[in-house]
Design a protein around this nucleic acid. Structure first.
Length: 417
RNA sequence: GUGGGCGUAGCUCAACGGUUAGAGCGUCGGGUUGUGGCCCCGAAGGCUGUGGGUUCGAUUCCCAUCGCUCACCCCA
């Protein structure tokens, strides 16, 4: 049995890499337009970074983290998400002292020990955006806008933006208490799952697929009735900006985030083509997070795009590899003669290949075709005797002779044309 | 963690319980002794995931195990 990759960890093979580059380059373009700067942070953090921010009682912290004790006895964790570590970094380097508003992005792998399924890997990749230092509703909208823009530029169809306000520390507890009270009243009528949920994460009961639970929850109190005027006002402005930008949305009063630090605006962008794990991008506001990690009381809003899920939605276009020039050298003498030329062309940045093995011309032509060579240079004993080499255009199948002394510039002219 | 589906060539898949487990694609070679793609011919490539059991005989049926996958849960 050959050694396999770890469960839930996937290789990105050469055939797929072009898609990754496409996603990354479009995202970078958008971030540049929105004035974001990139930050790169470690994959490993002290466990408390996540425990204190995500929430001790969340599934992520309770049963999904890759946590271990290292050789010096510290409890470390492979990051299950980016925001906590990023906020830690911002705090540690006092980046908020440089400018009142920080607009940052980062990309990379996250790790959660879940059962793998479609759109859910144990190592998965996110593109993260964080805007810190402002409570302005427009910053919420801008974060959503970036996610929407990237997905749209990638040509995704049928996306749905769902949005909700969770309320702030002033009004959220009021709603939670009321909901809990309601759930306690109907407790024995709920399914076992919901009985559990009602204690741990009461909002999740709204998501239950059980018919009886749904009926019960249809009469449950809704959070929008409990939003304080500040939160309601904030939400209204965020939505108004979305309308101005022609970004369609639906309000989903049951939308919850799985991380404790979220307040007020929360959103998801879902695709109908993804199966059960349909969220391509999601995010929200986390005003208390910096403070919770021992920093100043600065607000923040952010989002994450699930890159692996996004890639499931993109068409793989199968245009194979392509290089500028393939050199078919026949015989050991030609093989040697050609090396200084290759050195020169590669220095110029041309993509040049030749066969490692001494093979017949037919085999080399075949290889040239496979690697997608635009031109083939045929160099054999005959050519060297005549001081002429043959240049073949693989598209038109035309070929002509070029003097050996002129070959370097002749090829450069052809390729640049 | 729980449940369903599936494990046969590098890939996609065939094979009523019955000879030597096949095909397409890909790879390599030949047809063309120095010219790619199309065509024709040929070759290499398999412990049928693994271990037990039933049977005269198992890729096929049963059990276990491992892996993949989808869903629950949860989330990007």
């Amino acid at each position: 049995m050959p050694i396999r990759a770890v469960r839930g960890f996937k290789d990105v093979l050469p055939d797929e890499i072009e898609l990754w580059h496409r996603v990354e380059s479009i995202a970078r373009g958008v971030f540049n337009a929105f004035g974001l700067k990139e930050i790169r942070i470690p994959l490993l953090e002290k466990t408390e970074v996540f425990a204190r921010s995500i929430g001790e009682l969340t599934d992520i912290v309770e049963k999904e983290m890759y946590t271990f004790i290292d050789r010096s006895g510290d409890s470390l964790t492979l990051r299950p998400e980016a925001t906590a570590g990023l906020v830690r970094a911002v705090n540690e380097h006092k980046l908020f002292a440089q400018s009142p508003v920080l607009k940052l992005f980062t990309t990379g792998p996250m790790f959660r020990h879940e059962r793998p399924q479609k759109g859910r890997l144990r190592q998965f990749h996110q593109i993260n955006v964080e805007v810190m230092g402002t409570k302005a509703p427009f910053s919420d909208t801008e974060v959503i806008w970036m996610a929407w823009d990237i997905l749209e530029k990638l040509g995704l169809k049928d996306l749905r933006l769902e949005i909700n306000s969770l309320g702030c520390p002033a009004c959220m507890p009021m709603y939670r208490d009321n909901l809990k009270e309601y759930l306690e009243g109907v407790f024995q009528h709920l399914c076992p799952d919901c009985q559990r949920r009602s204690k741990i994460n009461p909002l999740r009961v709204f998501d239950c697929k059980n018919e009886a639970c749904r009926k019960i929850m249809a009469k449950a109190p809704l959070n929008r009735e409990y939003l304080c005027t500040e939160c309601a006002d904030h939400m209204e402005k965020v939505l108004a900006f979305l309308k101005t930008l022609d970004i369609p949305f639906v309000i989903n009063p049951y939308l919850v985030r799985g991380l404790d630090y979220y307040v007020m605006t929360t959103f998801e962008i879902v695709s109908p083509d993804l199966g059960a794990q349909s969220t391509v991008a999601a995010g929200g506001r986390y005003d208390g997070l910096l403070k919770a990690l021992g920093g100043p009381d600065l607000p923040g809003v952010g989002m994450a795009i699930g890159v692996d899920r996004l890639l499931l939605l993109l068409e793989k276009d199968k245009k194979g590899p392509s290089i500028d020039l393939f050199i078919a050298a026949l015989g050991p003498k030609a093989g040697k003669e050609v090396i200084p030329w290759i050195k020169h062309w590669r220095r110029q940045g041309l993509a040049v290949q030749m066969s490692y093995e001494e093979k017949g011309l037919k085999a080399q032509m075949k290889q040239a075709g496979r690697v997608g060579a635009c031109y083939v240079l045929i160099v054999g004993e005959d050519e060297l005797d005549k001081k002429q080499v043959v240049v073949r255009d693989m598209m038109t199948r035309d070929q002509h002779e070029v003097p050996v002394d002129d070959v370097i510039s002749a090829v450069e002219r052809l390729v640049s044309a």
